[in-house]
Structures are given as structure tokens and as C-alpha cells.
Design a protein around this nucleic acid. Structure first.
Lengths: 218, 218
DNA sequence: AAATAAATTTAGATTAGTCTAAAAATAGGT
DNA sequence: ACCTATTTTTAGACTAATCTAAATTTATTT
């Protein structure tokens, strides 16, 4: 079907499209893929020939219908495997990304379906991201960043924006996990830090932290 | 670490070494890998530079200590995944080979260990082949081919030599599965076929079949 | 609107893995 | 021991994915 590299580009474009609806630039894609702009141009041409993306020179790329469908399939597999690793093999949520990056490219419709069934058709991966179903549908939660909450407001922690091992381990260390309620006690205008209440504990967190935690209000 | 292709060559050499202890020929390897002899020579050179095989021009190859260890790790993963697919995801034993061929290349020591633990440290895969443990040790069963049994002898079916989907489905259709007792009622010298007794049923099977079924006698 | 800066593409090279065709080495038969 | 057939290796080419460096296009600034 498609190569690992092609699938990785599609996934990257999919994610970047959320940020740049007008079209994903070559440089943005190069940064996301940790490669050079010239390599990106080459690959985009190939994806364009295969009708996976819409591309006009110098104008950036967008996923075609087919490209979108393909990207979602890869993301579905990635998130199902992450769920499997955490729920069945006792991995911590900070250890699963790199392994899922490999597993997401395994080609077998039946495997994906059976895995989904075995896991009980989970709706979200360990980082709170929605898992697309077999038809490619997934819920787009009405979540917001903790940093956007005002003083005295509260919400449930539902996801992380940064899912690096470093950030996740920081959260573990401070006993912040998905599903817990967080209330903003104070906001410091000077540095953007905030004092929060979580499980009876008061905790001061920097803006970098609150900018990477997704919250659902009420 | 090593590429998919390198790992596949190591695995192929490992399997062929059982047949050709003196060294695996370029042509034998080419046939096993379904590629050309010239491609094999190129790859052998690379494996030799990486000290995975012992190679002298025109003399065939053998796995080095490192090559052997590496091949066994890949085989361990292949068989663990096959077990997973059959026991946890309800795959039939004839459907798992190609998927395991992909999964065997996933790189993560921890994943392999946790999967092994999750599965309860199984000793054999769905085709009766032994699963190497974390140290690379596995039992070499004292099995023989059904075709080698004489009239009136019996044994337990413990494995298959050919694990193609076609052969396995033939066995399913005739209700022959691992663990069942088979008794040889008659042997036909002319065509090598035999009449066997399995679960009260009498069945005539060709030599091609009896040559691909492993039996353990007491 | 021209000059400059930034982004993007092109040209040409590189590596891994493969191929075909030709050359070289080994093995077998007499 | 020689001739022939088979096996194996070498030489040169191809594709996918990448790179550097140069050229081109677009964007920004004055």
C-alpha cells in the first residue's frame, strides 16, 4: 500500500492542518518531520502524484479525501496500540509513543479490527486523544487549555497537548492525571503561572505546564 | 539496530542451517528469500562486514554468535506475536504468518518481555514451534515426521513443517489439530499414502501431508 | 517599485536494497 | 586432466528517500 515514510508525512500533514487550515507550508512540515525542506518537496510531489494531497507549487499542501482517510487510519492504529500497551502490557503513558510509531504501520485491516474489539472499542488513548472508529469517525471534544481558565474556574483534566516523556513524567511526579478536577485559585499576570487546587492539594504551575494541559469545563 | 531486510536474511539463514549444517549456499538463500543470487551476495557481504555471519567467497555462509542471537530474537518475537494473534485476537492459525512477519521487526526489548509475560510465557506457537525465552533458549523437541512412522505405530501430533495457509486449512477441514493422537493403520508403498486413525475416524492421507506433520511418539 | 530577505524548488549526489547480464570460480563427468 | 555445467560473484543500472548547494519564487521593507 503506502510506505512508512509516506504514512508519516500524511500523519504530520493531518496534525499540522489543525494549526494551518489554509495549507501546510514546506518548512512547517520539514520541522515536524525533522528533515530538510528539499526532502519535503520531493515527498510532496510523490504524494501529489498518488493523489493523497492537493499541492500547488509554493502554495503549501492539504490532504485530499484519500489522504485524510489514510492519515486517520494510521492515527487510529497508533492510538489503539498505545491503549493496548498501557492497559494490557502495563506500560506507563510516557513510554508508549515510540513503540506505537512502529506499530502504527503494520498492515492488516483485520488486525486493527480485532485489536479494537479485544480492547473493548476504547474511545480515547492514554493521553486523552480520541481514537477514530473503523469508519474514521472520532469525537472532537470541546476541550480548552488550562491556561485559558480564569481565577476561580474549574474543569476536569482530559488530555495533554505535549505528550513527551519529560512532560508526562512531570505530571506523574505531581500526581496530575486525566480525569482529575483542577480549580484555578490564583493567576499570576507577571509570569503566567497559576496556583491550582487538585485533590485537596495546592500546586503552583508555570505557564508552560498550563499551556499543555487540556481541560473540560463543567 | 538492524534493518528489516537484514533481519529477514538472518532468519532465513537460521532456518536453512538446520538443513545445511556445512554452510548455507547463495542459491538456497536466494530461493528462501525469493530473490536473486546476486542480491544475496550483496547482502551477505554487508552482514559479513557487520560480523553477523561468517562468509568466505564461494563457500556459503553461517551465522556468527551475534547473528545467531539476533536471528533467535526475531524468531522469538515472530512466535510470540503469532500466539498473541491466535490466543487473544481470535485469529485462526492459518492467518497469522504474514502479520507476524511484520510484527517481528518491532524494536523494543520491553515490549517483547511484557508481551511474553502477558501471554503467560508460552512455550510453543500455534504451529507447534518452540518459542525462545528471553535468554534465547528453546526446547528442541524429539519430534519426527508422520511419514516416518511404520504401520501400527502411533504418536501425538505436535507441529507442522509447512505452515502455509493452504496446508493448515486442509488440516482444519479434516479435523487434524495439534495434540491429537494419530495411529498408522496402513502404509501404501506405491504412492506413500497412509491410512490413519484419528479420533475414531479413519482417514487416507497422501505422502505430501504425512511429510509435513510432526509427531511425537511417547 | 526596487531591494532585500525568506521560503521553496531544482539539480545533482548518496545510501540501501534490488535487478540483469557478464565474468569468474567451482564441481562433475568422462 | 580437460571440458562442460552449475554456482557464485562482479559490474553497472534502477528506485526510494534522503542530503547539500544553487536557483527561483514569494514576501517584506524601505
Amino acid at each position: 500500500m503506502f510506505s512508512f515514510s509516506e504514512e508519516n508525512y500524511l500523519k504530520a500533514i493531518f496534525h499540522l492542518e489543525r494549526k494551518y487550515q489554509a495549507g501546510v507550508s514546506t518548512n512547517a512540515l520539514a520541522e515536524e518531520m525533522e528533515t530538510k525542506a528539499s526532502s519535503v518537496t520531493d515527498m510532496i510531489k510523490k504524494l501529489s502524484e498518488k493523489e493523497l494531497v492537493i499541492y500547488k507549487k509554493y502554495q503549501g499542501v492539504k490532504l485530499s479525501e484519500l489522504g485524510n482517510k489514510t492519515a486517520i487510519k494510521v492515527i487510529r492504529k497508533h492510538r489503539l496500540w498505545e491503549y493496548f500497551l498501557v492497559e494490557k502490557l502495563d506500560f506507563n503513558w510516557d513510554e508508549v509513543h515510540d513503540i506505537a510509531e512502529q506499530l502504527e504501520h503494520i498492515k492488516s485491516e483485520k488486525l486493527t479490527q480485532e485489536l479494537d474489539k479485544f480492547l473493548g472499542f476504547p474511545k480515547r488513548d492514554p493521553h486523552g486523544d480520541p481514537i477514530p472508529d473503523a469508519q474514521g469517525n472520532f469525537s472532537v471534544a470541546n476541550k480548552m487549555l488550562l491556561a485559558e481558565l480564569d481565577k476561580a474556574e474549574k474543569g476536569i483534566c482530559v488530555g495533554v497537548k505535549d505528550s513527551s516523556s519529560e512532560f508526562l513524567r512531570f505530571l506523574d511526579k505531581n500526581n496530575i492525571s486525566l480525569g482529575k478536577e483542577i480549580k484555578v485559585l490564583e493567576k499570576e499576570a507577571f509570569d503566567g503561572s497559576m496556583l491550582i487546587l487538585i485533590e485537596e492539594r495546592e500546586l503552583r504551575i508555570s505557564q508552560l505546564i498550563s499551556n499543555n494541559l487540556y481541560i473540560k469545563t463543567q
